Amino acid sequence: MSNFQKIRSHLGLSQAGLARALGMSQPNIYKYEKGQDVPPGVARKLIELAAKRGVSLTYDDIYQVKNA
């Protein structure tokens, strides 16, 4: 499971729900969960959304790289 997918799950949102909250399409969310780079603007919106839901989230949480 990708970091992006874990964050979405922790926020209790479906792909479609997160897409609506971030002002984008569900296929974009799917691509981020499958490994496409998350643009900084999207990361910022995700951090703001998490804060509104009482979840502390940082850029490091979003861009965390798996150990090889």
Rank of each mutant, 00 (worst) to 15 (best):
Y63H: 04
R20M: 06
L46Q: 08
L57V: 07
P40G: 15
V38T: 07
E33P: 00
V42D: 03
A43G: 11
G12V: 07
S25M: 14
Y59T: 01
H10T: 13
A21M: 03
R53E: 09
G41T: 09
S2N: 14
A50R: 04
P40V: 12
Q15L: 01
N3H: 11
S14F: 05
F4E: 05
G12L: 02
I47F: 03
G35R: 11
R53Y: 07
L18K: 04
D37Q: 15
K66Y: 14
Q64E: 12
G54T: 04
A50T: 11
Q36N: 13
D37G: 13
K31R: 15
K6N: 13
A21L: 00
E48C: 07
S2K: 02
I7P: 11
L22G: 01
D61E: 03
V38E: 05
K45N: 09
G41H: 09
Q5L: 09
S2A: 06
A51P: 00
R53M: 15
G54P: 03
A19K: 01
Y32V: 03
A21N: 04
G35N: 10
R53W: 04
M24D: 03
A16L: 06
L46R: 08
R44F: 10
S9Y: 11
L46M: 09
P40T: 13
P40N: 15
S14C: 00
K6I: 10
G23N: 09
Q26A: 00
A43W: 00
I47M: 05
Y59P: 03
L11R: 04
K45H: 10
S9G: 10
A68L: 14
K66P: 11
A19M: 01
A51Q: 06
G12T: 08
Q36Y: 10
V65I: 13
N28Y: 05
D60C: 08
A19L: 08
R44E: 11
Q36W: 12
L18N: 01
I29M: 06
